[in-house]
Design a protein around this nucleic acid. Structure first.
Lengths: 159, 159
DNA sequence: ACAGCATTGCTGCGCCGCAACATAAAGGTC
DNA sequence: GACCTTTATGTTGCGGCGCAGCAATGCTGT
């Protein structure tokens, strides 16, 4: 599995550029429109490896021009999440740009550092298999698993 | 593992009585106080196998007497969750009485039926193992895993 | 009885999330 | 280009969620 916990001092701008390029390609392929507002929201999220609340996003988008209403941000977020470009962190009421090109549909494990707030994405076939087995033995037909784990990341553990 | 998806027509009062007895025993053993307010909240939650929002709980508690303020309910919920008697369903902003006597600390998998709203609790050592392995390979020290799966329960699937 | 602690009540507030409607922009058709 | 359809954005408004800060009350042990 690919564990993604980027170093605290890496180049965020580079991340954002990569994420935007990827988003562009995805939207072109699917015939979806990556509008200015959607791009702004994705840029803001990609420039941070911490999950951002909708109202934090509003503030950051407002720093570059007009202040969008909450609903505008939520609609952009709905689009981005539906395209798999952004994840929602349920336990934080916050959103996070998806960095991995993990296979769509595969369950993602979010590793949330309680100290620095960074969130890593992990994907594990073993987790998926054990979850499906557990659900099946309960007669349950699973759709979308949400897995969020609080803890301490490697960088903070050293400090 | 013990999958718990009670039949839709089972005896809720019985569940509630069992849950209350268990809570009483737990609190006596730990020297904690199961006050009237905390008991009321737990009764309300135990009488439903669907997760309830804080404001739904307020309404249900108010039906038996004075209407508590939101903060009062949240404090009771904080207590009950800290004692492992109630779980919080992050993806729903709602709370659920814990039915299983599952080992404290063990990760619980919530199976949330999109059709009837019922929530089953499952506990699986395999899931725990695979999650710990995934976290460890990312250099992550896990604390409290949150696992919530949407889908369709066995009862609704038949219908 | 008294001091110390836990619990509850009260006031107030900020964030989250979206419905309903109106407006503007992009794309397709003739 | 003129027109229409579809999609996205702006505006207004509202309700639920969650808790801080302080005051009052109740319980516990000596």
């Amino acid at each position: 599995m690919a564990a993604v916990f980027p170093a605290p001092d890496h180049d965020h701008d580079r991340c954002a550029a990569d994420a935007l390029a990827h988003a562009e390609a995805v939207c072109v392929k699917r015939g979806e429109r990556l509008t200015a507002m959607r791009r702004h929201v994705l840029e803001v999220l990609s420039s941070s490896h911490k999950p951002l609340g909708a109202y934090e996003i509003i503030d950051l988008v407002a720093a570059r021009g007009a202040r969008p209403a909450p609903i505008t941000i939520y609609r952009a977020l709905d689009f981005l999440t539906s395209q798999g470009l952004v994840h929602r962190i349920e336990s934080r009421n916050a959103f996070l740009a998806c960095i991995n090109n993990h296979a769509s549909g595969a369950p993602v494990v979010f590793l949330i550092c309680e100290h620095c707030g960074a969130v890593g994405e992990a994907a594990s076939g073993a987790v998926a298999d054990s979850l499906n087995a557990a659900a099946k033995s309960a007669g349950f037909t699973p759709k979308s698993p949400v897995i969020e784990i609080s803890g301490v990341c490697a960088h903070c553990r050293e400090a």
